[in-house]
């Protein structure tokens, strides 16, 4: 435990290192913490906007991957960072769900962060192994209800987007299935393609290629409107599961107490990034679109975060899985 006290001393030292003047912010590189491993979908989003934000801010925005514990390690690092705008967080929907999923969270999601703006909302798809008997969503729900002891639902681990979407699906059809957790999307998709498991719900970034390659069957997309990349796929509302509209939304956060002018500058740089043609084009390749300007604001982001925490709380509690 002496480690911890020395660590605290070290943190204290860095706090003493002096707050930067808010007016001429930024005068040195800004660290954007991504609480997941490099190369994943969230990291890709961060690196795309960081590049554009660097140009607007006139200082390098450096992406730092602090993976671990479902994103809570990286988020915790930013929650405790100096609120000077030089450390920000890019997190996804997990920021809202970890508030319920982790009962011993080392920070308070609503009190320790200053929202900066929403970034994007990645759609999810409900998919099954290629030889799964159901033809469409209606048949799927009937089949799953009739065979709920046999049907298996894969996910990429506790707290992952596929885990959340799977919970939502079970909640929407009021049926508990056998969930099979994997370490990451790769192995889960592998077993779905190999027909070792039956169902999964995951981001388009992971499923589009397999759907187009006819390696798996798709039933619905969780957005309000159909996707350009998968035009034949009905939305969940069309398929009769309106409550399942969900997306893996991403947002930028600063530590609570960051001066308002700094937050404004960050938010402005984010809005510019989201209007950047290269960013729009890259996002389109990922199967998603940047949030409009009015959503990339601290207020809209804060409202969304609160709504999402409230939405997921009963679902997670009903499922009874917690990450600690």
């Amino acid at each position: 435990m002496t480690f911890r006290s020395i660590a605290l001393a070290a943190v204290g030292l860095s706090v003493l290192a002096g707050p930067a003047m808010a007016q001429n912010y930024p005068t040195r590189p800004v660290t954007m913490v991504v609480p997941f491993a490099a190369g994943g979908p969230t990291d890709t989003v961060a690196r795309l906007i960081a590049q554009s934000m660097s140009q607007t801010l006139g200082q390098q925005v450096v992406v730092e991957n602090v993976g671990g514990a479902g994103g809570t390690l990286g988020a915790g690092r930013v929650a405790k960072a100096e609120p000077d705008g030089y450390t920000v967080l890019l997190h996804h929907i997990g920021q809202a769900t970890s508030a319920t999923l982790y009962r011993k969270l080392p920070y308070k999601t609503l009190e320790d962060f200053q929202t900066v703006g929403l970034v994007t909302d990645v759609p999810m798809t409900i998919v099954a192994r290629k030889d799964f008997p159901a033809k469409d969503m209606k048949e799927l729900v009937e089949y799953v209800k009739a065979n709920k002891d046999k049907v298996t639902l894969a996910n990429a681990g506790v707290g992952s987007a596929s885990h959340l979407c799977g919970m939502l699906f079970q909640d929407a059809i009021k049926t508990q299935l056998t969930t099979v957790p994997y370490k990451g999307t790769g192995p889960a998709m592998n077993d779905l393609v190999g027909s070792q498991v039956d169902l999964m719900c995951d981001q388009t970034t992971n499923t589009t290629g397999q759907i187009k390659g006819n390696a798996i069957k798709a039933y619905a997309v969780t957005t309000k409107d159909r996707l350009a990349s998968l035009g034949d796929l009905p939305t969940v509302a069309e398929a009769g599961l309106a409550g399942m509209t969900v997306g893996v939304w991403h947002g930028v956060y600063a530590p609570k107490g960051t001066p308002a002018p700094v937050v404004e500058k960050l938010s402005g740089a984010l809005q510019t990034a989201l209007a950047d043609q290269t960013v729009i084009a890259r996002f389109a390749e990922l199967g998603t679109t940047p949030e409009p300007k009015e959503r990339a604001t601290p207020a809209a982001h804060d409202q969304h975060l609160r709504a999402e925490i409230a939405r997921w709380k009963p679902i997670i509690e009903a499922a009874g899985t917690f990450a600690d």
Partner: peptide, 27 residues
């Protein structure tokens, strides 16, 4: 198959998606 067997390959999937190639059996 478009399936990364280890973390390094998962990064390559990231590189492919950034380039607009969605990994999968059709590549």
């Amino acid at each position: 198959l478009g399936i990364p067997p280890n973390p390094v390959m998962a990064l390559m999937v990231g590189a492919m998606t950034i380039q607009g190639i969605i990994p999968g059996p059709q590549v």
